[in-house]
Design a protein around this nucleic acid. Structure first.
Lengths: 126, 126
DNA sequence: CAGGCATATACCTGTCAAGGAATATTAGCA
DNA sequence: TGCTAATATTCCTTGACAGGTATATGCCTG
């Protein structure tokens, strides 16, 4: 599971990262806040730590975990070319953000409500 | 594999997306450029299409695939809170980008070369 | 130093997704 | 209409990874 993208593919790991964005937390904190079993938390933290997403500090019997920014920059770097791509679509972006208000809606099922059918370009090859 | 993040976790899919950033391409184009078997390309394109990352146009016997920006915005939205987090680390960001020049280096093994050992905060609990 | 917390690790199991090979489908063309 | 090109789909196998349970480790306190 080498890449940064595979690391954040796991929903629980994303939840942990989002939780740490406000402040560092202990394993127990995370365990309680996210209602997930302690071994699960520890295992995900291990993955996140080895990938560089988090760092830990020892505090008596517990460990305080905090974010580490570098891996995120790798994602930013990958996304950069696409940003330039869709800067030509800012109108659609606005409409999108418009709809984005209500909570973390699962799939964007509002896309292509009854869009025009694919246009047959006709002709090609031999 | 519901989430946008799981979709882009797959390296071949990321390669396809990166390839499409310049212009739309046919399945055969992708197949040749990325040196991957045709069924593999088709299957990944299917996943990308169903997740909304790409759209296709019929052109005689082939299909032209092009990017669709919406799903990327979902990633952007998730990343946003973290950006604010590391805006306090811009110094480190600069150093990071400094090192980012040479190719798409795999893991950032240059991180924490011999950093100071975790500091025991001492005291806590009961 | 015994007991108890907090966290990490080991082991096992089930699931799921990616790849490979073969085949189906659709469209253009002779 | 039969052939070929381009793409999609199906079936199968395999490997990776996440969760669960149990256990180990480290540290603090009485």
């Amino acid at each position: 599971m080498g890449s940064v993208f595979e690391i954040i593919a796991e929903p629980n790991r994303r939840a942990i990262l989002s939780l740490l964005v406000s402040s560092q937390k202990s394993v127990g904190d995370i365990e309680r806040r996210l209602r997930m079993p302690q071994p699960t938390v520890s295992k995900h933290l291990r993955v996140l730590r080895e990938a560089g997403f988090v760092e830990s500090t020892v505090d008596a019997q517990r460990r305080l975990y905090r974010l580490n920014p570098e891996p995120f920059w790798e994602m930013e770097a990958w996304l950069a070319p696409f940003r330039r791509f869709w800067s030509g679509h800012m109108d659609a972006l606005e409409r999108h953000l418009e709809r984005m208000d209500g909570s973390t809606r699962r799939r964007t099922s509002t896309r292509n409500p009854v869009g025009p059918q694919p246009h047959k370009t006709r002709r090609r090859r031999k």
